[in-house]
Simulated assay, not measured.
Amino acid sequence: MAKLAFLGLGVMGYPMAGHLQAAGHDVTVYNRTAAKAEDWVKAHGGSSAATPREAAKGADFVMSCVGNDDDLREICLGKDGAFKGMKTGAIFVDHTTVSAAVTRDLAEEAGGHGVAFVDAPISGGQAGAENGQLSVMCGGAQADYDKAEPVIAAYAKICRRIGETGAGQVTKMCNQIAIAGIVQGLSESLNFAEKAGLDIASVVEVISQGAAGSWQMANRSKTMAEGEFEHGFAVDWMRKDLAICLQTGDEIGASLPVTALVDQFYKDVQSMGGNRWDTSALIARLRRFD
């Protein structure tokens, strides 16, 4: 068992840190809103700290799951950033979805502090975090990954090293690109069934058993049909992720026409007041504009 710090207790980080404590690790948490960290300690045990630096002091591993590039830079390099508190030989494991560029910059900074860095973005949504069933895609040195993987296993269904630093983030981009097209396709399919006067549940029961089947269909078709969009991963965050995908696509010469189009559809959802709706809310746009 290890001494750990977990930085960021959002809808993903809160249960992930809980799984680590339940696995027997000694976990210290930090959250920008201190009351949430105090609530976590009451629910799970462990301890909380006032700053990332304090949380990271003496930790073998420091895990993070925050909002974006700027948030990550701040908790790593700010006045009371984690890198200033980490001991030589410790490993920083970042679960935030950020650009590969900031990942590589921070990995270099970490090295200057005698600290290893593993980028480890996650997929599986709030339910995956709560149930310990996340997909974790990692980048970094093999030796560092080998040390971190048994810790990450507390909340992972699958955890794989894809390559060197940044490879985890690029793999997460692949994930978000695939999701964008799938959710739009599912939204169009369900909306089409509604317009045709078909029973959606019956349609989904049949087509989900064939080539059209997907995780999104199995887990979101019913709630999409009912207009329920409170499942954790917000449209605002998806647009943040797709912006990273589109920028990287330009940099590496990869064409992303469907991703670019769906990104604009999510912009429409934001204009409807759906910023905090989950990504399946694309069907609400179709219902509005049809």
Rank of each mutant, 00 (worst) to 15 (best):
A218E: 11
A218T: 11
A218S: 13
R220F: 12
E226W: 10
E226Y: 08
G227S: 08
E228V: 14
F229H: 07
H231P: 03
G232N: 04
G232W: 02
F233T: 03
F233M: 04
A234K: 13
M238S: 09
D241V: 05
L242M: 10
A243H: 09
A243T: 12
I244S: 12
I244F: 12
I244K: 03
C245W: 10
C245P: 09
L246Q: 12
G249A: 15
G249P: 07
E251L: 06
I252R: 04
I252H: 03
I252F: 14
I252S: 07
G253A: 05
A254P: 07
S255E: 07
L256H: 11
P257E: 00
P257N: 00
P257I: 03
V258Q: 09
V258P: 03
V258T: 15
A260R: 13
A260N: 10
A260Q: 08
L261R: 10
Q264D: 04
Q264P: 04
F265W: 07
Y266S: 01
K267E: 06
K267H: 02
K267D: 00
D268M: 11
V269F: 00
Q270P: 00
Q270S: 05
S271Y: 01
G273A: 06
G274H: 01
N275E: 08
N275T: 03
D278I: 01
S280A: 14
S280P: 04
A281L: 03
L282N: 02
L282E: 03
I283R: 06
A284I: 02
A284S: 09
A284R: 12
R285L: 15
R287E: 03
R288C: 00
F289R: 14
F289D: 13
D290Y: 12
D290M: 12
